[in-house]
Nucleic acid binder design. Structure first.
Lengths: 332, 332
DNA sequence: CTGTTAGCGCTTTCAT
DNA sequence: ATGAAAGCGCTAACAG
């Protein structure tokens, strides 16, 4: 009742192990029609399924791709993951997940784990690359050693293949659009100072404002965690300074927390204080007031990352996005 | 530059392959302190990492657990996945994902794939088990053949271990709470007729209403897809019949779509039409009007499923939840 | 406690 | 085009 082995299939078909292997598991070599059919029939009859680990061992690598994200419950990562999984499944690859909670050590551990699994490649989403860059570089080198590919989704690092998200230019576009709408008084919930994605969104936004001749006072730029609570907390801080104007949170999740803080202060987001986010989380598309934000083709980014796994080494892609103006920034 | 093998580690440490294996990879057997240290040192020096496929092959199974969900971008599955991944990582297990889009064939394919990978277990979330139950049963049997465990998250099927979600009783509680609030006129966006989860939520809700002496006319129970668009569509249909009362969507996502439809009709959800959902999607906790719903400990469910992987065969767990009353059903 | 030695199931030269 | 046979790296009896 144990699983049938290739050997048993070969035996039943009356051919050699080699022949059975050639017809059943994508080999370049040809096999005569008759034998081929006999093998196929035998395999079907026995309900044969290849033993993955054995194949991986013989071949030197599995057909697994590792996906490393900070938090799989976050809609941002979730959309990327959906794109990755869809593309991988279409290619016959299997996706295994690891989460880091933004902890560099865990990222390293997962990378090592995937190396040990002999994964074909790993996709690293939004890796913040401050300290411990050396360790990371070493682990990536080790991964390359086993013939694997590491692709990034976020910003370029070294010359690794990357699916870059045009955070900076999109933030600039958003700022311009907001300025065009007539906003003149801005604040920014900037996220963690060491997170490149947050930096780019902030600096891009500032650049767009500058083009419109608008400046933002330093105390109006508030750092904090990258999530809902971070937005809430940063907004509370901001409310000590102002109760009006337009505030840009570098993430929809942060904007959500910020709006909650605004309401808790007895004010109405979108009326007393205009609010803009970034990411365009799907769930938020249907709520009131609609949140002005930047839509990102995240599934597409995931798909592209899978493509890069088997592309020319060093190739890269850039995905853009589009500004979505909604009620939260509509001036009366 | 290729990865060092256990043999090389053993050689460098001056011990046998077996000894090296015993110290490096969790074996029950003891090894002398001195040798142990030498092996450890050698391994570290060589940056040794075990070859996963080779281990899996020798042991007969990998330490992978497969997670099969309908859609990994859906907050419901996403929370469960977060729980699964967290628990698995804590146990040294690796999670590989497969998505089905609610297609039974793909579910089968993934199950076969995990079997071929010699996964230790697979967690099947919300499998709808209408047709093709035989095929599924056969595949599950085959999976058991390789010594794996299949655990369900949803409703019991056969005597497989299951993390059951108390949909029915929670829906009853919700209905009671709503009736207590003074609602008397109800409609239901019931989801797909063949989805057990949807059925339970609907029948439970009806039961709760019945306890309060309230009946719902059959034409007020509208079937449709289980997602945002399904809710939208069902609500449009319902709007032909009524523009008031309290409508229960069996899913927050559906409630979201329904509220959009309500707004498109020029009405205000929470004012003209009360709205209740189910699931308590995190992102929705901060929006206005707050959606009355049922909070489910989904991460916990994921964690429990991982526990069941190595529990007594046939064990099960039930997770409940709690009704969360918010503005969307507040009567003036 | 330590070492020897068979395999695990499959791929892949290397002959034929 | 087909088959024989040598591993892939590791674990687990089985002997000492």
């Amino acid at each position: 009742m144990a699983q049938p082995t290739l050997y048993q299939v070969a035996e039943l078909a009356g051919v050699s192990l080699a022949t059975a292997s050639r017809v059943l598991n994508g080999s370049a070599r040809q096999v005569g029609e008759d034998l081929k059919e006999r093998v196929l029939a035998a395999a079907q009859q026995l309900r044969y399924t290849a033993n993955g680990p054995a194949q991986a061992m013989a071949r030197g690598h599995s057909n697994t791709v590792g996906l490393i994200v900070a938090d799989i419950a976050d809609p941002y990562f979730t959309q990327i993951a959906a794109g990755v999984v869809a593309a991988a499944e279409a290619t016959g690859l299997t996706v295994t997940m690891g989460t880091t909670g933004r902890n560099p050590e865990r990222e390293l551990r997962h990378l090592a784990g995937f190396r040990s699994q002999r994964a074909r490649g790993v996709i690293l989403v939004g890796s913040r690359l401050g300290d411990g860059e050396d360790e990371l570089a070493a682990e990536i080198a080790a991964f390359h050693d086993i013939g694997g590919t590491v692709v990034l989704i976020s910003q370029p690092v070294g010359d690794l293949p990357v699916v870059e998200i045009a955070n900076q230019s999109l933030a600039t576009e958003l700022a311009s659009a907001l300025a065009d709408q007539g906003h003149t008084d801005f604040s920014i919930l900037a996220g963690p100072a060491d997170l490149v994605t947050a930096q780019h969104r902030t600096s891009g936004f500032l650049a767009g404002l500058a083009q419109a001749g608008i400046e933002v006072a330093p105390e109006r730029i508030i750092a904090g965690p990258f999530d809902r609570d971070g937005g809430h907390q940063a907004m509370e801080q901001l409310l000590d300074i102002t109760h009006s104007g337009c505030v840009f949170a570098v993430t929809d999740a942060m904007a959500l927390g910020a709006m909650a803080a605004i309401r808790e202060a007895g004010l109405t987001p979108g009326v007393d204080i205009a609010m803009a986010g970034f990411d365009d989380i799907p769930t938020l598309a249907d709520v009131q007031p609609g949140l002005t934000t930047v839509n990102l083709p995240l599934r597409e980014a995931g798909r592209l990352a899978v493509d890069l796994l088997s592309a020319e080494p060093g190739s890269s892609r850039t995905v853009s996005g589009r500004v979505v103006l909604r009620d939260s920034t509509t001036l009366p």
